[in-house]
Design a protein around this nucleic acid. Sequence first.
DNA 1: TTCATATTGTGATAAGAATCACGCAACCGG
DNA 2: CCGGTTGCGTGATTCTTATCACAATATGAA
Lengths: 220, 220
Amino acid sequence: MKQKDVKIPEATIKRLSTYINCLEKLDGDGYQVVSSDLLGESCQVSPAQIRKDLSYFGEFGVRGVGYGTRSLAEQIKKILGLDHIWTTVLVGVGHLGQALLNFTAFRQHGFRIVGAFDADPAKIGTVVSDGVVIEPVSALDDTIHREQAGIGIITVPAANAQETADLLVEGGITGILNFAPIKVRVPENITLRNVSILSELDNLAYLLSNRTRRRSRKKS
Amino acid sequence: MKQKDVKIPEATIKRLSTYINCLEKLDGDGYQVVSSDLLGESCQVSPAQIRKDLSYFGEFGVRGVGYGTRSLAEQIKKILGLDHIWTTVLVGVGHLGQALLNFTAFRQHGFRIVGAFDADPAKIGTVVSDGVVIEPVSALDDTIHREQAGIGIITVPAANAQETADLLVEGGITGILNFAPIKVRVPENITLRNVSILSELDNLAYLLSNRTRRRSRKKS
DNA sequence: TTCATATTGTGATAAGAATCACGCAACCGG
DNA sequence: CCGGTTGCGTGATTCTTATCACAATATGAA
Ligand SMILES: NC(=O)c1ccc[n+]([C@@H]2O[C@H](COP(=O)([O-])OP(=O)(O)OC[C@H]3O[C@@H](n4cnc5c(N)ncnc54)[C@H](O)[C@@H]3O)[C@@H](O)[C@H]2O)c1
Ligand SMILES: NC(=O)c1ccc[n+]([C@@H]2O[C@H](COP(=O)([O-])OP(=O)(O)OC[C@H]3O[C@@H](n4cnc5c(N)ncnc54)[C@H](O)[C@@H]3O)[C@@H](O)[C@H]2O)c1
């Protein structure tokens, strides 16, 4: 992976993630080699787009032949940094937090949740998934250090998201995935991503409200 | 709302959704009028971007003054089609499905989940949230018609996502929000959006893996 | 070996989105 | 009621992303 130092579009990174899924599906279907055409068909991206995306990072295919299904998936995982375990903590074990803690695909993608924290005293001590016990927020710092956690997931109510982010940063986390519908602020050196499920639904509502006279776009 | 018939960037729609959140927060903080500058500060978008986004749909502000906080929020809701109730059904009441069923903000944004469906016989009949009882998938068609549901949410395992989408379409749903990590196929006239939490985490992993030598972008 | 075929990798081009910069409208203080 | 100030709306510009089209390279058959 030689990663030319041109800027990589964010959209490219998003697609790489989906390529992995499609490649694994195709691998399961028995394809040992896939062309950009076939892969594009499978994940609804144009073949040229796939080749361009990959070309940012190097050459992974064989001209006239295609890409090794399994090996390309591995390469992409390496590009995305999924070739090693990301130790993760989650704060706010409510409805969404519970769901994420039980989301087995995380583990398969290399994310291991090693700590779950909540402010509600009644929840402390509860076992939430294999081996993980809910701890008080006061234990965040210790656990982050002991487990060398690098990623923090925020699933507390919006009103408490900023303070939670602050605690995570203070504890030494370098990346945050925030599910609260609010823009939390973090220092320059912290990487933050927001997941807004509500805005996806809003988007759907908009599309449905304006179906008449719409160009035939087939994005996502 | 006059909606000039130029194409609206998808990114604009996504931002409109966040503007609503920020406006409601600012309203709560006592601002009756906000400038694009203040709003931009609050939701981390440039003032020019905000004005441009709004200009696609008309003129909502007063020159030299700003925007009425409450009224702008209302206008945006109208633009997004959030000025009426969207009747919704959810298929797959597992960990994630449970979380979504208990997500109160849905209701506040105008989405009402009127039906929950699962293939597991053991779950049928369970009450999941105020008044909603888990029904068998065979009841999908009836419920969609009876409740005039327009949106379907898919939270079944990836392997069952396509068949679920087919059922929803068959039942008369026109919009689908899919949480399964697979590209389901739907007819032209159905609006589909995919939510990929995993790919957000993958993205985070990528950013963390490549922190050295990175341009100072402050996107989401 | 040589030709026909498949399919990659990428520079050139087109399309799309964000930013700039400035005209103009509204308010305010004197 | 006038001049100064604020801050919106938007055409022009710049920056970013996607698409195109084709040279380059591997394979396999004759
Ligand atoms: N439920 C969903 O499907 C869903 C979907 C999208 C986004 N979200 C967002 O995720 C967040 C959580 O949603 P939820 O439905 O799980 O809410 P919830 O009320 O079920 O859970 C919130 C949990 O956070 C804990 N908590 C509160 N303050 C805390 C603090 N300061 N430190 C640690 N823990 C704290 C509470 O005790 C509770 O267990 C919200 O911001 C919500 O907007 C939820
Ligand atoms: N759990 C998460 O946090 C999370 C996050 C992102 C995406 N997802 C995705 O959401 C989906 C569900 O995840 P989950 O963790 O809730 O899984 P889960 O196994 O807890 O729940 C799946 C539910 O779907 C039901 N089901 C299975 N086949 C069905 C069918 N054909 N029709 C109706 N119901 C059916 C099952 O009985 C079960 O109740 C998966 O595709 C997963 O990849 C989950």
